[in-house]
Each structure stands twice: as structure tokens, then as C-alpha cells.
């Protein structure tokens, strides 16, 4: 069975912003390897000249008129956040002195 390397799993976890522990990393090496091995059978299909399907129903996406409408009040829009101050979302310091 295909195993991803630890470095590959770590790279994916970094790209996806997922902190994983050593046990999870080891488990994912085999699980992801098995899934990727299975989906590799897609390569058997001759898709030359086939337009990729990106949407289930052929349609032109509508654009709304550019007119301001009602929006959520700030305190409601921020109401689900863990840390809020002065009507804004609080994040850790991005720029250090």
C-alpha cells in the first residue's frame, strides 16, 4: 500500500493550516495513501477533448443589481466570534515591535 512520507503529510497540514499530532500524522500517511491510490484509477479514463464539468446545470450566473440593501448589524454579525472588541474581531498581533 502507498504511504505518504511524513514530510508530505506535514506539507499538506501546513497548507491546510491544521495542527496535527504525531499519531495523527502516522495514521494519515496510510489513510491518505490508500485514498490517493484508489482515485488514481481516474487515469484509466480517456478524457482527451472532454471539457471539464464545473457545474451540474448549464446556466449563466446572475448578477444582482449594485444597490445597497439591508445588512446585519455589527453586533449581530460579530455575535458568533469568541473574541470581539470595539465592533471588530480580535486577532493575535500580526506585527511585532
Amino acid at each position: 500500500m502507498k504511504l505518504l512520507s511524513r514530510a508530505e503529510v506535514d506539507e499538506l497540514a501546513h497548507l491546510a493550516r491544521l495542527a496535527i499530532d504525531d499519531g495523527t500524522r502516522e495514521r494519515l500517511r496510510g489513510e491518505l495513501g490508500a485514498i490517493l491510490e484508489h482515485v488514481a484509477m481516474l487515469g484509466e479514463v480517456d478524457t482527451a477533448g472532454v471539457e471539464p464539468m464545473t457545474h451540474a446545470v448549464a446556466m449563466t450566473l446572475r448578477l444582482r443589481d449594485d444597490v445597497p440593501g439591508p445588512t446585519l448589524p455589527v453586533e449581530v454579525a460579530t455575535g458568533g466570534a469568541a473574541v470581539v472588541a470595539d465592533g471588530g474581531f480580535v486577532v493575535p498581533a500580526v506585527i511585532r515591535e
Binding site: L12, A13, L15, A16, I20, G43, T47, V50, M53
Partner: peptide, 29 residues
């Protein structure tokens, strides 16, 4: 976590054509 990791794998540069584009073509078929 598994699905996010698989999705990240198939979308990254270098595997996009072999996995994601191919899958969208198979979807059309």
C-alpha cells in the same frame, strides 16, 4: 481532516491536472 488533506493534495500545484482536472472531465463523462 482526512478530506481537507485530500482536497489540499489534489488542488496543489503539480497534482491539479492529474487529479482535479481529470476528475472534472470524468464528471462530464
Amino acid at each position: 481532516i482526512r478530506r481537507i488533506m485530500i482536497g489540499t493534495y489534489v488542488l496543489r500545484a503539480g497534482s491539479y491536472d492529474a487529479y482535479y482536472r481529470q476528475a472534472q472531465q470524468v464528471r462530464a463523462l
